[in-house]
Structures are given as structure tokens and as C-alpha cells.
Amino acid sequence: MSEAVFQTTGLGLTYPDGTRALSDVDFHIKPGEVVSVIGRSGAGKSTLLRCLNGLLVPTDGSVKFRGKEVHSSPEHARTVRRDVGMIFQSFGLVPRVSVLNNVLIGRAGQVGLWRGLIYHWTDAEKQLALRCLTRVEILDQWHKRPRELSGGQQQRVAIARALCQQPAVLLADEPVSALDPATARVVLDHAVRICREDGIAMIANLHSVSLAKEYGDRIVAFKAGRVHFEGLPAELTDDVLREIYGEHYADF
């Protein structure tokens, strides 16, 4: 395989208030790979994703995107973000803006200031956005406002927005935690299928171990800010899970 999309070495992050969220994290993801990240609440999963796309500046170690240090400058971190799509637990759609324009906002990193200010999109951009909406099967809702959609539909729009960036990686921070189990599968199916079709690498923070095993090529488990386990879904045994989640793991 070619070089890693993301590669961290000795990554550490301490928040300004002194909370140590990540220590000594060596993590990588290859092009087209789907990695599930699991770990208890507060283990540092969200912090990892934010370090990868440069929203947080690590306090130790390095984060490389396609071989180049993400944090070499704030400008470079911004160019990295253009190639990195992200979806969130709370969807993060902009209220009162139509679904189509929300998807087009995925191009915000690529358009110049003036074009952005007047919401002027080229025909190619509009076609791309419509294609993204089609791929998550929500084209018929293009004119609605986010609050007129269900949670599952909103997350599909958020996926379309991330795809509209034509990213190399998709970061998903608990993308289905706010959804019922059936809808969760629909949403993950869409995201993972499209990533596989387009060769987009995907890192998904998941609270459901079964979903993590089912969708991930590889699993990385965090415990108290450190990588505690890394391997294939089959290697994630109940013993390991007990180490990660504590003795009561069997209860759920």
C-alpha cells in the first residue's frame, strides 16, 4: 500500500485547563481504509479527530497528512481541512439555510471570499452537490430547511456536505449516537459504502462495539488518552473489551 493518509507519532494533547486528553498516540490510516475508534467517554476520541484536521494544536508529537506536518502553520492546517470531511454527533447543519446550500457550504474552503459572501456557486459545484445528495438518497429534500428533516436525514445531508469537499478522509465523530439503531445502520451504510466506492479513508468514533466491529477494517481502542488496543475486529475479544470498558462490559 502507499503511504498513510494520516500518521501521528507520539501525539499528546493537554487542554489549557490541564486535562491530559491524549498521550503518546501512534496512529495511522491508509487510503481507503475504514478504522473504527472505540473507548469510554472521555478517552480522547474526539480530541484525536480534532488534532488530525488541525482544529486542535497538539502539545506533543506530530500529526502528518500525506507526509506533511499538519500544524506547520495555521494556513497549512486550513488547507488540510479542505481535504478532510467531518461529520458530527449533532449534525452541525446551518439552520435556516436550505439543504442544498448546506451541502454547498462544504465548498466553503475552496471558494474565494466574494463568491462565498454572495452564495454564488458555479454550475459544476451545484451539480456536484446534487450528486452528493443523490448518493445519500435525499435529493428530494434539497429545498427544505434542516429542522424540517429527521435526525437520520440530517446526518445524511451532513455526509453529503462532507462529500462535497471531495475529501481524502472522512472523520466521523459519533455519527450515529443520536439515532435509533435502525437509522444508525442506514446512515453508516451510506457513509461506508461511498467511502469504499471513492477510496476515501474513514475514521469513525463509535460507541457501539458491534457497529465498530461490523463496519471497521481495523479497530483502535483508546483508554485514558492512550491507544490500548489495535487490531482486526476478530481480535477484539471480550477480555480486551473488559479492559477497555471495565468489569460491567458484559451488562451491555
Binding site: L55, R78, R81, G92, Q110
Partner: peptide, 27 residues
């Protein structure tokens, strides 16, 4: 949340405000 999402697209600060904040406060 929407502001963070727009920031994650790699938008400049001006456009983050324009796309992420303005629609929320305009009314």
C-alpha cells in the same frame, strides 16, 4: 455546532462567520 462544522471544511474565518453564524442571527 454548525460553526465548528463550517470550520472543518477549511473555510477562512470570514466565511466561517458568514456561513456558520450569520444565518443563525440574521432574523
Amino acid at each position: 455546532a454548525p460553526v465548528e462544522a463550517v470550520r472543518a471544511t477549511g473555510a477562512s474565518n470570514n466565511l466561517i462567520v458568514w456561513f456558520g453564524i450569520l444565518p443563525q442571527v440574521l432574523p
